[in-house]
């Protein structure tokens, strides 16, 4: 009985001490080598809609996280505020009007993190837990949390 009570207390304490990143949080990330320190919501929206966003003279490169259907849903609702179809048409429209380059999409989170890590101009978004102890990646801010 004492053992069970002790275990319950331990579990409660561990739960309480669970770091913030372990919760459902979508974070904006760049490479640890990136000079980018912050991007506001409008800049993030412009970037992922295919418009030009620069910082410190570098043109930033958006990278889409399509590894998880829920991440994509949150991205469409909270970052670009569009349906999937409207977002796709918006990117096609910019490609047709002025040859803008579509963001690169990754369906594998390891490949996405590798791409962001190796390019100081890349900007993406992932679950916080995927980059919690990753020294190669810099978290700019929380975009969404549950």
């Amino acid at each position: 009985m004492t053992k069970i009570a002790a275990t319950a207390v331990l579990v409660t304490l561990l739960t309480a001490a669970r770091p913030a990143w372990a919760a459902d949080q979508l974070v904006l990330i760049v490479s640890a080598d990136s000079k980018v320190e912050q991007l506001d919501s409008l800049e993030v929206r412009k970037l992922f809609l295919g418009l030009t966003v620069t910082q410190n003279g570098d043109r930033l490169r958006p990278v889409l996280d399509e590894a998880d259907a829920r991440v994509k849903e949150i991205f469409l609702q909270n970052i670009v505020s569009m349906s999937d179809t409207t977002y796709d048409r918006s990117l096609l429209r910019l490609a047709l009007i002025q040859g803008q380059i579509k963001p690169i999409a990754y369906k594998d989170i390891a490949l996405l993190l590798k791409a962001v890590e190796s390019d100081p101009t890349a900007v993406s978004y992932v679950w916080a837990k995927d980059v919690a102890h990753d020294s190669r990646i810099k978290i700019l801010r929380v975009l969404w949390y549950d």
Binding site: L92, L96, I101, A115, S118, D119
Partner: peptide, 13 residues
């Protein structure tokens, strides 16, 4: 060309 910060794309309608 990733490290040269160039990118290219094409669409066919």
């Amino acid at each position: 060309a990733q490290h040269e910060h160039s990118s290219s794309d094409f669409e066919v309608f």
